Computed example of a mutant assay.
Amino acid sequence: MNEEDALLRAICEHPDEDMPRLAFADWLDEQGTVSAAWAELIRVQMALARGAGDPRERLVARERELAPVVVESWPERMGLPVGLMWQNWTRGFPFTLAGPGELIRAAHPRFAGRVPLCEFNFRGATDADLLALATWTEARLVRKLGVWTDTERITERAFIAMVDCEHLGKLERLRMERVQLTERAAVAFLDSPFMAGLLHLKLLVGGLGHLSSGTRERLRGRFGEYDVY
Rank of each mutant, 00 (worst) to 15 (best):
V179W: 04
G197P: 04
I154T: 09
A61F: 09
I104S: 06
F24V: 04
Q31R: 15
A132C: 13
L201F: 01
C118P: 01
M46T: 09
D16T: 08
W136E: 06
R91Q: 11
R178V: 03
P116G: 06
A128V: 09
P20D: 15
I11S: 01
I104D: 05
A132I: 04
E138V: 07
G124Q: 11
Y226F: 13
G32I: 07
A125V: 05
R140D: 07
L7C: 03
R157N: 09
A36R: 15
R184H: 13
G79A: 06
A128N: 08
Y226Q: 12
R216Y: 08
K144T: 14
A125M: 07
E57C: 02
G209T: 14
E119K: 06
C12N: 05
R21Q: 05
F24I: 05
L131R: 12
A106S: 11
P15Y: 10
W27T: 01
Y226T: 14
R157S: 08
V142H: 04
A49F: 10
S212M: 11
L66A: 00
R105C: 13
E225A: 08
L80E: 04
T137D: 13
A125W: 02
L198A: 06
I160F: 01
H167I: 01
Q31F: 10
V142P: 03
T33P: 14
W38V: 00
H167F: 15
R140K: 03
V163H: 12
P68M: 04
W148D: 15
R9W: 05
R178I: 02
F111R: 02
R173I: 13
R58V: 08
M85P: 00
L145R: 12
E102I: 08
E225H: 07
D191H: 05
M46F: 01
H108V: 07
W38A: 00
M78D: 05
S35D: 14
R110Q: 15
G53R: 01
A112K: 06
L28Q: 03
F122P: 08
L8D: 04
P116A: 11
L130M: 12
A67V: 00
T149F: 04
V228S: 03
G51N: 08
S35F: 13
A186K: 01
L117M: 11
M195K: 04
V228N: 03
V69S: 00
L204Q: 12
P55A: 10
D150N: 08
K202H: 15
L203T: 11
P55R: 09
H14A: 15
V142G: 06
R123Y: 14
D129E: 03
A67S: 06
L41M: 10
P100M: 07
T126A: 10
R62H: 02
P81C: 12
S212I: 08
G224L: 09
L198P: 03
A132F: 13
P55H: 11
E63I: 00
E156S: 15
I160M: 12
L59F: 00
F223V: 03
P55I: 10
M19R: 10
G99W: 11
D18Q: 05
L66Y: 00
P109C: 10
E183F: 12
L174A: 07
G207R: 14
P94G: 05
V82W: 04
D54C: 02
T149L: 04
A188V: 09
E4V: 09
P109S: 09
E102L: 07
L133R: 01
R220L: 11
G221R: 05
C165S: 15
R123A: 07
L130T: 12
